[in-house]
Amino acid sequence: MTKERSQGQTQDTPRKASGGRSIVTGILLLPVVAVLFPTCVVLLAGMAPSIVAYFVDRTQGKYLAITVALMNFCGNLPGLTRLWQEGQSLEAGMRLAADPLHWLVSYGAAGGGWIIYLTVPPILSVYYSSISAKRIDDLKRKQAQLIDTWGSEVVPGDFAESSEKIIRP
């Protein structure tokens, strides 16, 4: 019991520390939010896909969230630029929120990030397969050269069977 409790205690400690850091960060950001309230509102609404991605992404390092967030942020930048040009007021913010193009660009960019995240693995898989095949060929060529120079005796007994496969072609 004592052991389990101590383990529970050690697991809770980082959570508590993390929660404490979030509260501190929130308190420090409050003045910024107060000053940039229209920008924060627009940004919070525009970055909704990234927030979803953050919670959906279970991988260590949160690569999906980062990928989507980076693109999503780029999509929000034109809207934010317009907001700032119009004086960063709540009215300008409401107009921007009513603009479907802004949402299309913002969420479309997030969608682009998602697409990047989904399409890279198969492309990389093909790339790695071709790299592997080439490297295997190179290594077998080197082995064949060793056999040419030193004879088939150079193949250690454990690899004799596989070496025959090399010699045959």
């Binding site: 693995p121 990389l124 790695y128 082995q143």
Partner: peptide
Amino acid sequence: YGRLENNIHWLTEGGLSAPEHVAGKARQAA
């Protein structure tokens, strides 16, 4: 020869193209 054979074995067994390896590298690449 033994070292080369081990490398070939690693590659043949999916040292580079294994889904886990590709997925990890793909996340970074994306």
